[in-house]
Design a binder for these strands. Structure first.
Lengths: 124, 124
DNA sequence: ATTAATTGATTACACATGTAATACAATATT
DNA sequence: AATATTGTATTACATGTGTAATCAATTAAT
């Protein structure tokens, strides 16, 4: 059931809008993306159409316009993308990614503390 | 200088071979990938050519065959891919990825310890 | 009612990618 | 020398993606 479709970079931006607020009309999505991108409205409509075809989203006729909503949850997609990314780059092993990134990422003391708390929980 | 070229999924497999042993002839790469993939030799040669065009690898004429070698390091590429992945999926924030994954990944006690050590170092 | 504006559907087009096959040139074999 | 083999270069072709424009239908305005 939960076959997550391939979602491209540009499509992902559209998904983020719908995950944050749905249902949304095409115009609402277009408006939401106006700041972050300089895509023409037609471009965004194309992306919406492709996402419908991929069954990542769907819509219902609300009055005269379509009201789009996601068919897949952000969580599922993030998990799926992350898994395939890990597989691709790190051969599926999570730890090397962590080590690699912990070493160079700037994390605030609070964040470090939070992460340590999570680790503490896990070791119980 | 360090403009990392876009490396596709299939190309990445070829890069991994060259990172693990270079220089390698086309045939050596083909052989190395025989187990992991069912790509035809011609396919792998295409990938090698594309990587040369992208300036991800280069070659020198060794005797009668080309000896391919990477022009970009694995570390650079991993970092670059990871950064763009993070940007795409997590809006560039590293912590949510960590939190998300720490929660569901199975890590051995040793791994947890190692990660905590890294975190300890960082908080100094 | 005719025209303009809006929204959704269809079409476009270049470049990337997966996945090779064919052409060509140099070398090895008979 | 003619031919077969092998390695490289060029070409192929479908699908995905970025980035829209045009077409068509419906609604709004005059």
């Amino acid at each position: 059931m939960n076959n997550i479709p391939q979602i491209s970079d540009a499509e992902w931006e559209v998904m983020k809008v719908l995950w944050s607020k749905s249902p949304s009309s095409a115009n609402e999505v277009i408006e939401a993306l106006e700041d972050q991108t300089d895509w023409k409205p037609k471009t965004i409509r194309t992306l919406l159409n492709r996402l419908v075809q991929k069954q990542a989203i769907s819509y219902s006729q609300e009055g005269k316009v379509y009201a789009y909503f996601p068919l897949v949850s952000e969580d599922e997609c993030v998990r799926s993308e992350t898994a395939s990314f890990l597989k691709r780059i790190y051969g599926g092993a999570f730890k090397p990614l962590l080590v690699n990134f912990l070493k160079e990422e700037k994390l605030s003391p609070e964040e470090i503390k939070e992460l340590k708390n999570i680790l503490d929980d896990k070791s119980k």
